[in-house]
Design a protein around this nucleic acid. Structure first.
Length: 756
DNA sequence: GCGCGACTAGGCGGG
DNA sequence: CTAGTCGCGC
């Protein structure tokens, strides 16, 4: 049978598509066509093996990847809806779906009611903080952030608070973690909330308590496919191997060299030890890179080969050499930013490059600010992936949180946010909140029930006792939220939204005179139009569906495809995994940033962290298809302090025969000069106890035949040098702009040190 | 209980 | 630098 889904695949790819039954591990290098293999395999299962779509589970790293993969399979099969019934999504969306599918069992065995909400990072921190205070500790001495990552690590090992306390506590610090974990867990259960780790761990607990639920899934999922397997953690491994235990058709794809989430408890052993975990597994290597030029592939290969924790293999490609990799040193982050923007303008204007084909990558989100600034004063449009998400803006989060409280009246964090941020919460301070909270806990009621009981004391338990202003505020709040909760079951969601804003007086919190506040109000209205898409759903399901979608959305998911043609992408190296662009800038490749200082500090005890940083650089390099530009600076401002920067150690492994190096050599006349000159000036200041004019001798001198780089005209060759008192007049033949005559001191030239 | 200015501490990545 | 907390006067 000649199959169309195998057309155009190389032998290894084709084998990966058809290899079955049993476990399969595909080790797929960057650009080796792994997405294509995944979609082809799904199409093959459905079309050739006649596996019903609803008996396939495919796990992806982002929702966006799931969406795109589904579209591709549909297209490949040539029949829309061919994949309906197929489970495709992230581990987290799969987890929440499982918890929603068996509300009875979930309530009975896990004590979680069907209207549970998902806590995001901010909510989690607030809950941890409450737990720290509850055990009589000071959140300033015990940072919630640190506690949370310890708790997350414990959950990723499937340890309950009791198990953690019993087996993991060795120091006083561990003891604190154990107690905070216990309090945090209780807090979440009281609020009928789950966190991201719960979405993975709770299904497993459900399977333990109700084996029939697990069996149902085991029977159903004849084929399970997992993408980005190198970034799965212990819980995800347990989940997947449980689900695949019956049919054993587990197909995982990954690249150990692109494992960049160890900090999130991803365990590289999942992929390295796949053969031990599943002894009958077939391993297939995809090593041919179809994405990048040969120079880029060579650079990637050389960079990653320095790591010790890896499977030894060599990347290959049949692609052309392409253009040299550009390694550019700049004075500081502003110079770096303006260089990037001027290069991009040149690409767009002179070479007809589409903005969507360009990406700028960086290690930390803070680095995007300077670049964004440079874009703002240009005519080039850009978009930032990550950073402050729309849904994280204070005003948007306020309204979302209030919607959450309508849906789940036990949501303590949501309640406290409403009290703090809505006009209707005025009058309720810490004392009143304590009284409400004490009553609620003692009587096992929701926060909204506590509010209602203030006015109409419970026949059995009485009600919370509040005085004066607090009492009135609590009564009002109780009325509004209990009536909104009742309305939510019959009103279309947009009307519910309007009622919420109306009855909480939220609009009056914005000063309509101030431009900034009007802007924030506009965001609230944008949220409203976001809701319109859900307005046709039955009122009972619209709200939970919407809240869930917002909770599970990732930065990359939010990547707005509408105007992608006209925008350059600014993205962190982490978010860039899985994407590709013809032109890629990897910026800030400096010690302390890439590798990040924390990894360097830990290097002595744990070299793995620096290795992960190297993999991150590798991920960045391998995103580029045609042209790779790497930048680093001589000094950089961090927290208002300017620090000298040293080029990253990773740059040493670049194959110099494929790299064109341009280092900063900043003549007078440019603010914030770089490198040598600046150091000379620094020395002059310290030695003579004050600023001295630079001696004329330190002006850069040029010679004919020298290659130079101009921020506007690009690369050129010095053809003529005429001495002019303390300066030089230069004749330069620019590659793209022809001959120009420039004065050395004003030309802002850099020298090109190595060319190819 | 609220709103303001002063202060300090964090210092990365994200479903 | 920036966000979040503290402590004051109202």
């Amino acid at each position: 049978m000649q199959s169309t889904v195998l057309d155009g695949l190389n032998p290894e790819q084709a084998q990966a598509v058809i290899q079955m039954p049993g476990p399969v591990l595909v080790v797929a290098g960057p650009g080796s066509g792994k997405t294509r293999v995944l979609t082809s395999r799904i199409a093959y299962l459905i079309e050739e093996r006649h596996v019903p779509a609803d008996r396939i589970l495919a796990v992806t790293f982002t929702n966006k990847a799931a969406r795109e993969m589904r579209e591709r399979v549909d297209r490949q099969i040539g029949r829309s809806g061919a994949t309906s019934g197929l489970w495709m999504g992230t581990f987290h969306s799969m987890g929440v779906r499982m918890l929603r599918s068996d509300p009875g069992a979930v309530a009975q065995h896990l004590g979680i009611l069907p209207n549970f909400v998902i806590y995001d990072d901010t909510d989690q921190q607030a809950a941890v903080k409450a737990a720290i205070i509850a055990i009589g500790q000071d959140p300033k001495r015990i940072p919630p952030r640190r506690m949370l990552s310890r708790i997350s690590a414990a959950k990723s090992l499937l340890l309950t608070p009791a198990e953690y306390a019993q087996t993991e506590v060795k120091t006083y610090d561990d003891e604190i973690v154990a107690r905070v974990y216990d309090g945090y867990d209780a807090y979440l259960r009281r609020a009928n909330a789950v966190d991201f780790d719960d979405l993975l761990a709770l299904p497993i607990r459900l399977f333990d308590a109700a084996p029939n639920v697990l069996e149902r899934y085991q029977d159903r999922f004849e084929h399970i496919l997992v993408d980005e397997y190198q970034d799965t953690n212990r819980v995800q491994y347990v989940l997947v191997s449980n689900l695949a235990a019956k049919h054993r058709n587990l197909f995982v794809v990954g690249d150990p060299d692109q494992s960049i989430y160890a900090w999130r408890q991803a365990d590289i052993r999942n992929i390295l030890d796949f053969g031990n975990d599943f002894p009958d597994a077939v391993r297939i290597d995809l090593e041919v890179n179809y994405r990048s030029t040969a120079r880029i592939v060579a650079a990637a290969d050389r960079v990653i080969r320095e790591n010790t924790q890896r499977i030894d293999r060599k990347l290959r490609t049949d692609n052309d050499d392409g253009e040299p990799i550009i390694l550019r040193e700049l004075a500081d982050q502003d110079h770096e930013a303006s260089f990037i923007v001027s290069e991009i303008r040149r690409f767009i204007q002179r070479e007809g490059v589409r903005p969507r084909d360009i990406a700028i990558m960086y290690r930390t989100t803070a680095q995007s600010r300077a670049i964004e600034q440079a874009f703002r004063t240009s005519d080039v449009r850009y978009r930032i992936v990550g950073g402050l998400r729309f849904y994280d803006r204070a005003e948007v989060k306020d309204v979302l949180t209030a919607l959450r409280l309508i849906y789940n009246p036990s949501d303590q964090i949501a309640f406290e946010r409403v009290v703090d941020h809505f006009p209707i919460g005025r009058g309720l301070g810490p004392k009143a909140l304590d009284a409400l909270n004490d009553w609620r806990r003692a009587n096992q009621r929701s926060v909204v029930e506590a509010l209602v009981a203030v006015e109409t004391p419970d026949a059995v338990d009485g009600g919370p006792i509040l005085g004066g202003a607090a009492r009135n505020a609590a009564i009002k709040l109780g009325q509004v939220f209990s009536s909104l909760a009742a309305e939510s079951r019959r009103l279309p969601i947009v009307e519910l939204f309007d009622r919420l804003l109306d009855e909480t007086g939220y609009q009056s919190a914005f000063n309509q005179e101030s431009e900034e506040e009007l802007n924030r109000w506009a965001n609230v209205l944008e949220l409203r139009s976001d809701l319109v898409r859900f307005n046709d759903l039955p009122p009972a399901t619209a709200l939970p569906t919407y809240l869930e979608q917002v909770a599970l959305i990732s930065d990359v998911d939010a990547l707005n495809d509408e105007d992608k043609d006209n925008t350059v992408t600014l993205i962190t190296l982490h978010s860039a995994k899985g994407l590709e662009f013809p032109i890629v800038f990897v910026t800030g490749v400096e010690e302390g940033l890439l590798p990040i200082s924390r990894a360097i500090e830990a290097e002595h005890d744990d070299p793995n962290q620096v290795e992960e940083e190297r993999r991150l650089f590798y991920v960045g390099i391998t995103r580029a298809k045609r042209l790779l530009i790497i930048t680093h600076t001589g000094h950089r401002m961090t927290y208002g302090r300017t620090e000298d920067r040293v080029p990253s150690r990773f740059l040493a492994s670049l194959p110099m025969e494929h790299v064109k190096t341009i280092s900063a050599r900043s003549p007078l006349g440019r603010s914030g000069g770089a490198g040598l000159l600046d150091k000379a000036r620094q020395a002059a200041i310290t030695e003579r106890g004050g600023f001295q004019p630079m001696p004329a001798a330190s002006l850069p001198t040029y010679e004919t035949g020298q290659r130079v780089f101009h921020p506007q005209f690009g690369e050129g060759l010095v053809t003529e040098v005429v001495a002019r008192h303390n300066d030089q007049e230069l004749g330069i033949d620019f590659v793209r702009h022809g001959k120009k005559r420039l004065l050395a001191s004003f030309a802002r030239l850099d020298t090109v040190e190595a060319a190819s």
